[in-house]
Amino acid sequence: MSSRKGLRRGDDGTPAAAPVDNITQSQSCEDMPPAWFLSEMEKGFSRIHDMVEDRLSNINKVVEKIHNEHSAINEKLADLSAKQSEYEATAVDLPEHDRPRALVIRLLRSSDTEKILAAARQLKKLEYGNSTIMVFRDVSTALYKRRKAFTDLKKLLQRCDIKYSLLYPATLRIDLSGGRRSFTSPKSAETYLRQHHPEYF
């Protein structure tokens, strides 16, 4: 009987329903998460925010680095383009040098070599611009070294304004006041010049 004492009854004798406001307030309190949960959620969101900010900062640094490298590449390309234009203008306005340098051409068939040599003999003199082109057979490594050994002596003759020719395969012909002399080695040429023309040294 005591447990039923506090119940309100309606006109028909049935228990009356509890007030709506009390039920809503009770349900709202039950639906609210506890304070510790909200605190942990806030800490989690804060950590996520810091992580995102850190990642964005790193991405910005990478983007800035790429931008700087791209700018540097553009500057180098512009510099190379300017130098190329300068070289092209120089190549058009000036000859490469007084004496043509040696070029080695490798042909697939030996018959082509013979045709080129025969054509060069027929022309006798082959010129390009102000330079004379001379055509020889293949130059082996040993022969190349023999011809290159005359380099210092040729520089001396150029300084002294002495006419000379390096004939194939490796013979230096010098036009001297006493006549024309030919030498097959730089040592023999230097020995002769020191004995008969010491004024060149």
Rank of each mutant, 00 (worst) to 15 (best):
E127F: 08
S185L: 00
R47S: 10
K115E: 15
P95I: 01
E86F: 00
S177W: 02
L176V: 04
L7E: 09
N130Y: 05
K124S: 11
F150D: 01
S85M: 07
A82W: 06
F201A: 04
L166W: 04
V63D: 13
D98G: 02
H197S: 05
T184H: 08
S28D: 03
D112R: 14
A119W: 09
R159V: 09
Y144V: 02
S46I: 06
P198R: 01
G179C: 03
K187T: 15
T184S: 11
N22C: 02
L77W: 05
L126H: 05
Y128K: 13
G6V: 00
D21F: 06
E96C: 03
K43R: 10
K163C: 03
K83Y: 00
E69Y: 15
S57C: 06
S39D: 13
A149N: 09
Q195F: 03
R101P: 07
D138C: 05
E127Y: 12
T171C: 07
S110K: 07
K43L: 09
S188F: 00
R121K: 15
Y128A: 09
K43E: 10
Y200I: 04
V62P: 05
S182Q: 13
H97W: 11
P33A: 07
L94N: 12
M41L: 13
H70F: 14
R9E: 08
T184C: 08
R180D: 02
P19S: 04
E114L: 09
K163H: 10
K83V: 06
F45W: 12
R106P: 08
I59T: 08
P33M: 00
Y87S: 05
Q84N: 12
I116Y: 04
Q158F: 02
H70E: 15
R137K: 13
V92K: 12
V104C: 02
R101G: 12
R147S: 07
A16V: 08
A78M: 07
R146H: 11
K154M: 15
E199W: 00
H70M: 14
K154L: 08
E114N: 15
L176M: 04
M32N: 08
P198W: 01
S140K: 03
K148G: 06
E190H: 07
K154C: 12
R194L: 07
R121C: 03
A78V: 03
S28C: 04
E75C: 08
L108D: 15
Y144I: 06
S131I: 12
S71K: 07
E199H: 01
I59C: 08
E53S: 12
F37D: 10
V139E: 13
K65Q: 13
